[in-house]
Amino acid sequence: MFSYLVNRVFQAIGVLLVVALLSFVIFNYVGDPINNMVGQEATLEDREELRERLGLNDSVIVQFLRFVANAAEGEFGISYQFQRKVSDLILERMPATLELVFVSAVIALAAGIGLGVFTGLRRDSWLSRFVLTVSLVGVSLPTFVIGILLIYIFSVGLEWLPSFGRGDTVRLGDWDSGLLTGSGWLAIILPAITLGLFQLTIILRLVRAEMLEVLRTDYIKFARARGLSRRAINFGHALKNTMVPVITIAGLQIGTLIAFSIITETVFQWPGMGLLFIQGVEFADVPIMGAYLLLAAIAFVAINLIVDLLYAAVDPRLRVSAQRGKGTA
């Protein structure tokens, strides 16, 4: 198990270096950053001095290594637009995004698995058919349309929920949390549903398909023949066997939640990293874009690592190679 883990960590580092290279290339070759930083009346000497001070005259390799070393320490340079350290800006915005992603992931997983099991077990009931029909809407409508639709119904029409912002937040050390106030919870409902609806429907349909598949297997038939209770069969034996593909997809989907949050945060003016990124794009704020790219990659890599570890926890057949290393027959 340990060697497997070490192996995976090295692979993850490799992936991150490649992403860092991409991020660095964007940083360096999308136009001349000096032009963005100095005014119209700056002299050539001023420009050269700034270039020297920022280390832009060093060789490409030295610059890349410096970028990686800085990134490893959480330094991504100064934002052109805000004239502040990118790391500070991101740390400020990160709690909002992570809370939004967390709440949507919980909604998507809980409702997705629950409804998936229900529609898989009761596949002929009218309620299952209704859920499946509605879930088509979740798959087909783009995120921003769902967001605007929800705002139109619940904020404009019914006036139940706020249409933008995070509500009141509570400061916990470095973490600005909106999950401890009533207005924070009210504010997070619409964006979380908007962000999670697509993932919810994907998980629902996957769990349903896997349940139908597993319920046809011989070991479920044999479990019935052993006279086990319906509950033990459906949840103990069937649901656990659907988990490997569900964990894979759910993991990837949580990664895309972070990526998709750009759109949702824009629609709901949610003060998270996605909104920061969009603002960065509008101003060609390369350090922010580079840092965001790298952070998204770290999130994906970390989630994939967790997914790999969860596989082994769920399916004993995947632990075999690790056990052989320990010398058990």
């Binding site: 011989d218 070991y219 044999f222 479990a223 023949a225 034996h237 066997n241 769920v314 399916d315």
Partner: peptide, 16 residues
């Protein structure tokens, strides 16, 4: 008691 044809698929792979 019941015994089915294929022992390779009669047991749930995820449980001891």
């Amino acid at each position: 008691g019941v015994i089915f044809q294929d022992p390779l698929t009669s047991l749930n792979p995820l449980y001891t």
